[in-house]
Computed example of a mutant assay.
Amino acid sequence: MMTNLFSVFDPSSSILNLSINWLSTFLGLLLIPSIYWLMPSRYNLIWNNILLTLHQEFKTLLGTQGHKGSTFLFISLFSFIVFNNFMGLFPYIFTSTSHLTLTLTLALPLWISFMVYGWINHTQHMFAHLVPQGTPAILMPFMVCIETISNIIRPGTLAVRLSANMIAGHLLLTLLGNTGPSMPNSIITILLVTQIALLILESAVAIIQSYVFAVLSTLYSSEVN
Protein backbone atom coordinates (compact mmCIF):
# COMPACT_ATOMS: atom_id res chain seq x y z
CA MET A 1 0.00 0.00 0.00
CA MET A 2 1.31 3.45 -0.92
CA THR A 3 2.11 5.75 2.01
CA ASN A 4 2.58 9.48 2.22
CA LEU A 5 6.15 10.64 1.46
CA PHE A 6 6.16 12.76 4.62
CA SER A 7 4.87 9.95 6.86
CA VAL A 8 8.42 9.44 8.18
CA PHE A 9 7.98 12.72 10.08
CA ASP A 10 4.70 11.70 11.73
CA PRO A 11 4.78 11.07 15.49
CA SER A 12 3.75 7.39 15.32
CA SER A 13 5.33 5.89 18.46
CA SER A 14 2.73 5.65 21.18
CA ILE A 15 1.99 4.00 24.51
CA LEU A 16 -1.66 3.79 25.60
CA ASN A 17 -2.57 6.05 22.62
CA LEU A 18 -0.24 8.78 23.93
CA SER A 19 2.37 10.02 21.44
CA ILE A 20 5.83 9.66 23.01
CA ASN A 21 7.88 10.93 20.08
CA TRP A 22 7.72 14.48 21.40
CA LEU A 23 9.68 13.33 24.47
CA SER A 24 12.77 13.45 22.24
CA THR A 25 12.53 17.24 22.61
CA PHE A 26 13.87 16.85 26.16
CA LEU A 27 16.85 14.64 25.24
CA GLY A 28 19.06 17.73 25.19
CA LEU A 29 18.57 17.97 28.95
CA LEU A 30 20.69 14.82 29.33
CA LEU A 31 23.75 16.83 28.23
CA ILE A 32 23.32 19.51 30.88
CA PRO A 33 24.36 17.71 34.14
CA SER A 34 28.05 17.70 33.09
CA ILE A 35 28.01 21.47 33.71
CA TYR A 36 27.79 20.77 37.44
CA TRP A 37 30.97 18.68 37.61
CA LEU A 38 33.71 19.98 39.93
CA MET A 39 36.29 19.82 37.14
CA PRO A 40 34.79 21.14 33.87
CA SER A 41 34.98 18.76 30.92
CA ARG A 42 36.24 19.69 27.45
CA TYR A 43 32.65 19.70 26.22
CA ASN A 44 31.78 22.14 29.00
CA LEU A 45 34.65 24.48 28.12
CA ILE A 46 33.76 24.45 24.40
CA TRP A 47 30.07 25.07 25.14
CA ASN A 48 30.92 27.95 27.51
CA ASN A 49 33.05 29.58 24.80
CA ILE A 50 30.16 29.27 22.34
CA LEU A 51 27.73 30.83 24.84
CA LEU A 52 30.11 33.70 25.65
CA THR A 53 30.57 34.43 21.94
CA LEU A 54 26.79 34.40 21.39
CA HIS A 55 26.29 36.63 24.44
CA GLN A 56 28.68 39.26 23.07
CA GLU A 57 27.10 39.13 19.62
CA PHE A 58 23.50 39.35 20.88
CA LYS A 59 24.52 42.18 23.22
CA THR A 60 25.89 44.10 20.23
CA LEU A 61 22.69 43.46 18.20
CA LEU A 62 20.42 44.61 21.03
CA GLY A 63 22.45 47.81 21.50
CA THR A 64 22.52 50.04 24.56
CA GLN A 65 18.71 50.22 24.71
CA GLY A 66 18.32 46.46 25.25
CA HIS A 67 17.30 45.21 28.68
CA LYS A 68 19.99 43.61 30.81
CA GLY A 69 19.83 39.84 30.78
CA SER A 70 17.69 39.65 27.64
CA THR A 71 20.56 37.97 25.76
CA PHE A 72 20.10 34.87 27.94
CA LEU A 73 16.60 34.40 26.47
CA PHE A 74 18.02 34.15 22.95
CA ILE A 75 20.98 32.01 24.08
CA SER A 76 18.52 29.56 25.67
CA LEU A 77 16.48 29.60 22.45
CA PHE A 78 19.59 28.82 20.40
CA SER A 79 20.58 25.99 22.78
CA PHE A 80 17.11 24.43 22.70
CA ILE A 81 16.90 24.46 18.89
CA VAL A 82 20.46 23.27 18.25
CA PHE A 83 20.04 20.34 20.68
CA ASN A 84 16.80 19.28 18.98
CA ASN A 85 18.29 19.65 15.50
CA PHE A 86 21.27 17.48 16.41
CA MET A 87 19.21 14.84 18.20
CA GLY A 88 17.08 14.50 15.06
CA LEU A 89 20.17 13.40 13.09
CA PHE A 90 20.44 10.18 15.11
CA PRO A 91 18.49 7.15 13.84
CA TYR A 92 15.04 6.54 15.31
CA ILE A 93 14.94 9.86 17.16
CA PHE A 94 11.97 12.08 16.31
CA THR A 95 12.94 15.50 14.87
CA SER A 96 10.57 17.85 16.65
CA THR A 97 11.97 20.99 14.94
CA SER A 98 10.75 19.70 11.55
CA HIS A 99 7.14 20.32 12.67
CA LEU A 100 5.43 23.70 12.51
CA THR A 101 3.73 22.77 15.79
CA LEU A 102 7.01 23.37 17.64
CA THR A 103 8.55 26.12 15.49
CA LEU A 104 5.38 28.25 15.54
CA THR A 105 5.13 27.69 19.30
CA LEU A 106 8.58 29.26 19.59
CA ALA A 107 8.18 32.08 17.04
CA LEU A 108 4.61 33.27 17.64
CA PRO A 109 4.78 34.08 21.41
CA LEU A 110 8.11 35.87 20.89
CA TRP A 111 6.73 38.02 18.07
CA ILE A 112 3.49 38.79 19.94
CA SER A 113 5.39 39.82 23.08
CA PHE A 114 7.69 42.10 21.03
CA MET A 115 4.71 43.73 19.32
CA VAL A 116 2.72 44.23 22.52
CA TYR A 117 5.72 45.68 24.33
CA GLY A 118 6.67 47.95 21.39
CA TRP A 119 3.19 49.33 20.70
CA ILE A 120 2.46 49.99 24.39
CA ASN A 121 5.80 51.54 25.41
CA HIS A 122 7.21 52.95 22.14
CA THR A 123 4.16 53.77 20.02
CA GLN A 124 5.71 56.63 18.04
CA HIS A 125 8.84 54.55 17.38
CA MET A 126 6.69 51.70 16.02
CA PHE A 127 4.76 54.06 13.74
CA ALA A 128 8.07 55.50 12.48
CA HIS A 129 9.17 51.96 11.50
CA LEU A 130 6.21 51.70 9.10
CA VAL A 131 7.63 54.44 6.83
CA PRO A 132 11.34 54.13 5.91
CA GLN A 133 13.35 57.33 5.99
CA GLY A 134 13.39 59.27 2.72
CA THR A 135 10.17 57.72 1.32
CA PRO A 136 8.29 60.10 -1.06
CA ALA A 137 4.92 61.30 0.23
CA ILE A 138 3.01 59.64 -2.62
CA LEU A 139 4.47 56.21 -1.76
CA MET A 140 3.88 56.42 2.01
CA PRO A 141 0.46 54.61 2.03
CA PHE A 142 1.94 51.74 -0.02
CA MET A 143 5.01 51.52 2.21
CA VAL A 144 2.82 51.35 5.31
CA CYS A 145 0.90 48.40 3.77
CA ILE A 146 4.12 46.64 2.71
CA GLU A 147 5.83 47.14 6.08
CA THR A 148 2.71 46.00 7.95
CA ILE A 149 2.45 42.80 5.89
CA SER A 150 6.18 42.07 6.25
CA ASN A 151 5.84 42.58 10.00
CA ILE A 152 2.83 40.26 10.29
CA ILE A 153 4.45 37.38 8.38
CA ARG A 154 7.63 37.44 10.48
CA PRO A 155 6.67 34.60 12.86
CA GLY A 156 5.54 32.51 9.88
CA THR A 157 8.83 33.00 8.04
CA LEU A 158 10.80 32.17 11.19
CA ALA A 159 8.84 28.96 11.76
CA VAL A 160 8.71 27.81 8.12
CA ARG A 161 12.42 28.52 7.52
CA LEU A 162 13.46 26.27 10.39
CA SER A 163 11.02 23.42 9.74
CA ALA A 164 11.50 23.46 5.94
CA ASN A 165 15.30 23.27 6.21
CA MET A 166 15.09 20.38 8.66
CA ILE A 167 12.52 18.52 6.55
CA ALA A 168 14.48 18.96 3.29
CA GLY A 169 17.70 17.33 4.50
CA HIS A 170 15.99 14.54 6.45
CA LEU A 171 13.73 13.75 3.51
CA LEU A 172 16.71 13.48 1.17
CA LEU A 173 18.55 11.21 3.62
CA THR A 174 15.44 9.02 3.97
CA LEU A 175 14.87 8.73 0.22
CA LEU A 176 18.49 7.80 -0.46
CA GLY A 177 18.48 5.32 2.43
CA ASN A 178 15.33 3.61 1.15
CA THR A 179 16.87 3.07 -2.30
CA GLY A 180 19.89 1.24 -0.81
CA PRO A 181 18.47 -2.32 -0.66
CA SER A 182 17.52 -2.25 -4.36
CA MET A 183 20.93 -1.02 -5.57
CA PRO A 184 23.78 -3.25 -6.82
CA ASN A 185 26.82 -3.63 -4.55
CA SER A 186 29.01 -1.50 -6.83
CA ILE A 187 26.84 1.57 -6.25
CA ILE A 188 26.38 1.04 -2.48
CA THR A 189 29.80 2.59 -1.78
CA ILE A 190 28.86 5.74 -3.69
CA LEU A 191 25.56 5.86 -1.79
CA LEU A 192 27.35 5.56 1.58
CA VAL A 193 29.78 8.37 0.70
CA THR A 194 26.83 10.53 -0.41
CA GLN A 195 24.93 9.79 2.82
CA ILE A 196 27.96 10.71 4.96
CA ALA A 197 28.43 13.96 3.01
CA LEU A 198 24.74 14.80 3.45
CA LEU A 199 24.98 14.01 7.16
CA ILE A 200 27.89 16.44 7.54
CA LEU A 201 25.90 19.05 5.60
CA GLU A 202 22.87 18.46 7.86
CA SER A 203 25.07 18.93 10.93
CA ALA A 204 26.10 22.33 9.59
CA VAL A 205 22.46 23.18 8.77
CA ALA A 206 21.44 22.21 12.32
CA ILE A 207 23.81 24.83 13.75
CA ILE A 208 23.18 27.49 11.10
CA GLN A 209 19.37 27.34 11.32
CA SER A 210 19.34 27.57 15.11
CA TYR A 211 21.76 30.52 14.89
CA VAL A 212 19.61 32.24 12.24
CA PHE A 213 16.45 31.76 14.33
CA ALA A 214 18.11 33.24 17.42
CA VAL A 215 19.73 36.17 15.55
CA LEU A 216 16.51 37.14 13.74
CA SER A 217 14.60 36.99 17.04
CA THR A 218 17.25 39.29 18.56
CA LEU A 219 16.94 41.73 15.64
CA TYR A 220 13.16 41.80 15.95
CA SER A 221 13.55 42.51 19.65
CA SER A 222 16.03 45.35 19.04
CA GLU A 223 13.56 47.06 16.68
CA VAL A 224 10.95 47.62 19.40
CA ASN A 225 13.37 49.35 21.85
Rank of each mutant, 00 (worst) to 15 (best):
T64E: 15
H55F: 09
L51A: 12
T25Y: 08
F26D: 00
P40M: 10
L38N: 13
N48F: 08
L27Q: 06
S24F: 11
M39F: 14
I20L: 12
L52G: 01
F26N: 03
L18Y: 11
T53P: 00
L45Y: 00
I35C: 08
L27E: 03
Y36C: 08
S41V: 02
S24T: 14
L52S: 14
L52W: 04
Y43D: 00
E57R: 03
E57A: 06
F58Q: 05
I50W: 03
L23W: 10
Y43L: 13
L51Y: 09
F58P: 10
T53S: 15
K68S: 15
G28D: 03
Y36W: 15
Q56E: 12
W22S: 06
W22E: 02
F26W: 03
Q56T: 01
S34K: 10
G66S: 03
G66I: 00
L45E: 10
L38I: 10
H55A: 03
I50S: 05
Y43H: 02
L62S: 09
R42G: 07
N48V: 04
N21V: 09
Y43R: 04
L27M: 11
L62R: 07
N44H: 13
I46M: 04
L52D: 13
T64Q: 14
T60D: 12
T53H: 02
I35N: 11
G28L: 00
Q56P: 04
L18T: 10
N49A: 13
F26I: 04
Q65D: 14
L45D: 10
L31T: 12
K68D: 15
N21G: 15
W37C: 10
L27W: 05
L51D: 13
L27I: 11
K59E: 15
H55M: 02
K68C: 06
L38S: 12
T64N: 09
L23M: 12
F58A: 07
F58G: 00
P40K: 01
L61K: 08
N48C: 00
S41Q: 09
T53Q: 00
L31V: 08
L61E: 06
K68W: 08
N49M: 09
L54H: 03
L31R: 13
R42Y: 02
H67C: 03
